[in-house]
Every structure is written in structure tokens, then in C-alpha cells.
Design a binder for these strands. Structure first.
Length: 555
RNA sequence: UGGGGUGUAGCCAAGUGGUAAGGCAACGGGUUUUGAUCCCGUCAUUCGCAGGUUCGAUCCCUGCCACCCCAGCCA
């Protein structure tokens, strides 16, 4: 991770403020609504908010925006806390809720009424909609707009006391029905909801709207920079209207940045929920999803996610980040940290005709080729082995330097072998290879000058661990599935492949690493959410052979 | 067609009145018992387009074009 990266525009604004007034504090907040799980887009916001403050010795609140009891649930709040922590951020004692301020918010609403800046509207939702006008047509005043302050106070009190049913009345800010900014056309600030709230129970039957609650919660907490995504840009005048008219002690500043879009995936809570409800994926923590829970289960290290968020930057431009950027962050971290092992995903048996049936050698294999300090392990070797099906080709192209009839390859950390005979079943499918090994080519002995182009991985038939492995591919066929009217039709049918693999026996141990590289096959981890041991492929290795193959195919 | 935004390489992204950082991808080469890693090199005569100002414009001005967001008692 490079720390020489230039400052984004938000950091530039803040640092200029700090220069102008060094006594400034930096206080930020991450304000999720507890109505679903966090995803990579939230990770970007979390990283931004926490790091911007941390870099400047400031603080960051984790504040739940729990103003809509119908959608929210404590289980979501718990998962969000877990996710933020797992990503590596610490809100210390700054865990708050919009609902902590319900009393203050209620009082602020009363004060707005007293200043004739808010009124109770008895119009129906349809009437409200028709008064609002359109994008090109200004709205008209509600017939209830000029109610007296006393009447408004009385009605609002009765709203609070539960005298009206949901939707019957609404408290609105009195701003300007002719404003070209729709948000300023007398927006709702309190609505009636006879619904139990996850934290305040039945104490309230009126709940504040987002714009009102959010702006004031920021002010109450002394947030200095309220960082949010671009769709809230035209809410900013309203945000400031509340701050100005409620006359709060602190005046936070809202700054907007563009949300993250990741190619071939979805970063929208609503659409994610759709996939889950339709059972297209197996829950919020499905490893194919870029939810934090999904990525955690998939095996993505939090460091890699933070690195990714730093690399994509913060601007106001629309973007569609390539999947490769994320995967590369994962590879980069795991490449240096994950121990190496061997495992055969799709086994092909080979028998070494000239190796003593009763002999077993325990060969040394390095745990990491670049870091000898990580030690070695033993790999049992005998006359029956598994190699990868894809490492043998009966009719091999020129550049293919793995096994072919009559050809030689090295078995990693073992011997060079030659393919002597191909055994097939009645369907013509290759079922076994008879090979010979060259005893002079044992790894590390240097007794032979023989050089061979390819090195392949293997596992001893008699010393292998059967393992259930899941391979993942992108969930969508289209780079931008959110643009697609029918999401289901853009699903990649091959996004999940389950197979029965053969792993080296050292993995069948209590102290085996939970995350490791299967050489030439990618990075894997144990799926912690499964009772039975299953492995997830976190990410593949870079594969230039696949590239060559693809090019050859397209020619 | 009202309002608010955004346009710099395939994808991100700096920059600024003085001649276009960096990352990813791609491509070429080297090392390699992982076709991995690592290393070296190449990759924008041009900054959405058209005019104007200027010795000089990606940057300033004017006009245009494209794309994104907004009409919840969601956030």
C-alpha cells in the first residue's frame, strides 16, 4: 500500500479548514440504517470516514439511523457492528442511534412549528403527491399550509399521543412549494407509524424522517464533516435549512462523493435483498456477494478490502471499477502471507511403473518459496499419485509444457516423470497414466542436469485428504447488472462449482493453516460458516496460460 | 423540458496558465522446480466537442454535447 497517494478532494477541503483554523476538530460518522447487511460500497464509506478522522486525530461515530421501525431490526445492527470491527475500525465509545435523540428531535420539531416553519398536513398521500408538482412544474400549497401555530401544536401533540392512524397526518417543513429543488417543497419531517421500534419499543408512534433526523443528529454529535454519497447532493440545502433553523450549537458540513460500482456485481442493498429473497444466492453471506459478510466468508482479508478502498479513490465521478482491482488486492496480500500447499482439484491417477510399490518417501516442501523462514513440511510420495486432469493433454499444442504422451514434467518437490502409457475407458476418456520416474532427478539433490519446462503439483493416492471445495466465479454475466431490467437473466449460471478434491495430507491436521495457497490453483480457506469442513476458493492465481489459450482460441 | 452533479488512456486517478503523476489492465523481455511471485521496459503530442483570450490553455471565457441523480409519509 502506497502512502504517497495524493489526497482526495475531501481530505484537501478538510486540511485547508485545518490550516485556516488549527483548533478545528475532525469528527465524522458512519450512519447505516439497520435494515440490511453492509456491502463493499459501505466499506468505502467506512474506510473514508474512519481514516479521514483517524489521520487527523479526530473521532468517528458509528450511528444507527434507526428512524423507520418498519424496516429495521436489531439483528442487522449486530451484523453491522461485527462488519465494521472486522474491517478493522474502532468506534470506541461513540456508538449512537438516531433514536437516542428522539426527545430532542421532537422538541426541535415543536420549535419549528412555533417559528411557523412547520405545519401539520391532513392531506392524503395522493393529495400530497398531486400538490408536489413535477420536475418541470412547480408545486402548489396545501390547503393546510396556513394553519395557526396553536392548531399545529395541538395537532402535532395529538399525533404524538396516538390519536391518529398511520398516514392520516404528517408534519411538514414550511419551505417553498415552488422550489426547483424537489427536496425543498415542504418535505415531511414526522410521520405516524404505530409500530414497535427495536430500541424505543412503543414509546413513540411518530418517527422523524431521514433528512430531519440525520442533519440534526450530526449537529447534536458535533460532527464536523458529514460525508455521504452523491444522491444526497440536492438534499444539502435541506440539510442546511434544518441546521440553520433549529439553531444548533454545531454546524456540520455535508460533502458528497460518488458511490462505488464494481463490475459484474451489485452494490445496492435493495437489489442484494432481491437476490436473497428470490433465492438466487444463499443468504447475505453468500461468498459470491460483495457484502462484507460474503467477502469474509469467501476469505477476503480485511486488509485487502481496505487497500482496495484506498486504491479506487474518492471523487465525484461515476465509476465502474473492474473486478480485477479487488481480486488483485486480495492476491497481493495473500501472496505474501498465505502458506503454500498442494491439492488436486480434478484428479487423474498416475502410477509410477518403476517406483517400488512398498516404498514411501517423505519429501520436503517449502511453506513459502519466497520466505524460507516459514519452514517446510513433509509430503509422502509413493508409486500412485494424483495429478490435475488439466495437466495432461493427449494432443498438446506447442506451448503446452505440462504432461503429454512421451513427455516429461517435474513433480513439484519430487522427481521428473515421463508419461509412458495412456489408459482410457470404453468412452475414450483418459482414466489413468502409466509413468516412469527418473531417480536421479530428486528435488534438491542436483545429481541430474536434466531440465524440464513444466512443474506440476501432485498428491499421493494413499496419503490424501478428500475435501469438498467450492469454486466461485462472478455472479453476473454483465458488467453492470444494475442497469438490467431483469436481473435474473444476467446471472452467470456457472458462478458456483462444487467439487470433490484431493488435498495433501498435511492439511488434515489441527494446526493446518485456515488460509493457504494451493499451488497453481489459487488461494483457499476453510468456510467457517459450515459445520462440515468445506473449502472456498478465495481467488485464483494469475494465469498467463489461460490467456494464451484464450488468444489461441480466438484466432 | 426544472434543479443538482460529472466528463483526463480499456478501468480507476493526480495535476495545473509553462508543455500530462501513480495504480490496475494490456503488451514485450528477464529470473523462476507454482505458466505464481519478483524484476525491467512499452503504453495520452493530448485532457467530452467547438470557438475565444493568451507568447503559451487540460487549466480562464463562451457555446454545445454526453452521462448520472431528484417528483417516498425510504435512507
Amino acid at each position: 500500500m502506497s502512502d504517497i497517494s495524493p489526497k482526495d478532494f475531501i481530505r484537501q477541503i478538510i486540511d485547508q479548514d485545518l490550516l485556516d483554523d488549527p483548533s478545528c476538530k475532525v469528527v465524522t460518522r458512519f450512519p447505516p440504517e439497520p435494515n440490511g447487511y453492509l456491502h463493499l460500497g459501505h466499506a468505502k464509506s467506512i474506510c473514508l470516514n474512519f481514516s479521514v478522522a483517524d489521520e487527523r486525530k479526530g473521532i468517528t461515530y458509528l450511528r444507527f439511523d434507526d428512524t423507520n421501525p418498519i424496516k429495521e431490526d436489531a439483528v442487522f445492527a449486530e451484523s453491522i457492528k461485527k462488519d465494521v470491527q472486522w474491517l478493522g475500525f474502532d468506534w470506541q465509545d461513540k456508538l449512537t442511534h438516531a433514536s437516542d435523540y428522539f426527545d430532542e428531535l421532537h422538541q426541535a420539531a415543536i420549535n419549528l412549528i412555533k417559528k411557523d416553519l412547520a405545519y401539520v398536513d391532513s392531506s392524503s398521500p395522493d393529495e400530497l403527491k398531486s400538490y408536489r408538482g413535477s420536475l418541470t412544474k412547480s408545486g402548489i400549497n396545501s390547503p393546510y399550509r396556513d394553519r395557526s401555530i396553536e392548531e399545529n401544536l395541538d395537532l402535532f401533540a395529538r399525533m404524538k399521543n396516538g390519536e391518529f392512524s398511520d398516514g392520516e397526518m404528517i408534519l411538514r417543513a414550511k419551505i417553498d412549494m415552488k422550489s426547483p429543488n424537489m427536496n425543498l417543497r415542504d418535505p415531511a419531517i414526522y410521520r405516524i407509524r404505530h409500530h414497535q421500534h427495536q430500541r424505543t419499543g412503543n414509546a413513540w408512534c411518530i418517527y422523524p424522517m431521514y433528512d430531519f433526523a440525520h442533519a440534526l443528529s450530526d449537529a447534536f454529535e458535533g460532527i464536523t464533516y458529514s460525508l455521504c454519497t452523491l444522491e444526497f447532493e440536492d438534499h444539502r440545502p435541506l440539510y442546511n435549512w434544518f441546521i440553520d433553523n433549529v439553531k444548533t450549537e454545531h454546524q456540520p458540513r455535508q460533502i458528497e462523493f460518488s458511490r462505488l460500482n464494481l463490475a459484474y456485481s451489485l452494490t445496492s442493498k435493495r437489489k442484494l435483498k432481491d437476490l436473497i429473497d428470490k433465492k438466487i444466492v444463499n443468504g447475505w453471506d453468500d461468498p459470491r456477494l460483495v457484502t462484507i459478510a460474503g467477502m469474509r466468508r469467501r476469505g477476503y482479508p480485511p486488509v485487502a478490502i481496505r487497500d482496495f478502498c484506498q486504491r479506487v479513490g474518492v471523487t465525484k465521478k461515476d465509476n465502474l471499477i473492474e473486478m480485477g482491482v479487488l481480486e488483485n488486492c486480495v492476491r497481493e496480500y495473500l501472496g505474501d502471507t498465505a502458506q503454500r500447499r498442494m491439492g488436486v482439484l480434478k484428479p487423474l491417477k498416475i502410477t509410477l511403473s518403476n517406483y517400488d510399490k512398498n516404498q514411501i518417501e517423505n519429501l520436503d516442501a517449502q511453506n513459502h518459496p519466497n520466505f524460507p523462514d516459514l519452514g517446510t513440511r513433509k509430503m509422502p510420495f509413493c508409486n500412485e499419485l494424483y495429478i490435475e486432469q488439466s495437466d495432461f493433454l493427449e494432443e498438446a499444442p506447442k506451448k503446452f509444457f505440462r504432461l503429454k504422451p512421451g513427455g516429461e514434467v517435474r513433480l513439484r518437490y519430487a522427481y521428473i516423470i515421463r508419461c509412458e502409457k495412456v489408459i482410457k475407458n470404453s468412452d475414450g476418456k483418459v482414466t489413468e497414466l502409466i509413468c516412469s520416474y527418473d531417480p536421479d532427478t530428486k528435488s534438491g539433490t542436483g545429481t541430474s542436469e536434466k531440465k524440464v519446462k513444466g512443474t506440476i503439483h501432485w498428491v499421493s493416492v494413499r496419503h490424501s485428504l478428500d475435501a469438498k471445495i467450492r469454486l466461485y466465479d462472478r455472479l453476473f454475466k454483465l458488467p453492470n447488472p444494475s442497469n438490467c431490467e431483469d436481473i435474473e437473466s444476467s446471472i452467470n449460471p456457472n458462478s458456483l462449482e462444487t467439487l470433490q478434491a484431493k488435498l495433501e495430507i498435511s492439511l488434515d491436521s489441527e494446526d493446518a493453516p485456515a488460509v493457504f495457497q494451493l499451488e497453481r490453483n489459487g488461494y483457499f480457506c476453510i468456510d467457517k460458516e459450515e459445520k462440515e469442513t468445506k473449502y472456498n476458493r478465495i481467488v485464483t492465481l494469475r494465469d498467463s496460460w489461460a490467456k494464451i489459450e484464450k488468444q489461441a482460441l480466438s484466432q
